[in-house]
Amino acid sequence: MERLTTRAKQVSNKEMTLMERIYLPAILHGMGVTLKHFFMKKASVRYPEVQRPFSPVYRGVHVLKRDEEGRERCTACGLCAVACPAEAITMVAEERKKGEEHLYREEKYAAVYEINQLRCIFCGLCEEACPKEAIFLTDKITPVEEDRASFIYGKDKLVEPLDKRVDVSKRQSWRLNQA
């Protein structure tokens, strides 16, 4: 019969020899093993100070990008919400008024745009569905909150600040290279 594993061991019920019954050699051997581990490199990382490197395709918290002139790209078409398998995205569309041209790129924009971070499965389908290159997933992780309501991210948390643009090029260029 073909073995399923190479590490199988034949179990036997034979009487132990005197050396085995004394038990001390086995104990000393075991202590040698643990002592070796005492000096080995540790597997854990001092987390907040040291972080393990993320994969270049890591999908973290979303960002709503602005264009080069600082206008919001999102036009509230709702394709991301349709694409979302977890139904985590909701939005309310509104028409751009006169004098708001420097705020919104298209004539329609999202007055309310919410992503529930607890529902989101970070699949990245919203990013692929977006025709306006407005929504992207970044390499940031969702910070800890103390109540569930705080995990529903509105535009205040999602839209990138004008003075602190979010760089999404790492993941995007990796994807382009693959394609």
Partner: peptide, 13 residues
């Protein structure tokens, strides 16, 4: 600490 080191961990720090 000894427990942690023997188990390849860092222990309380």
């Amino acid at each position: 600490k000894v427990a942690a080191f023997l188990q390849d961990r860092l222990g309380p720090d």
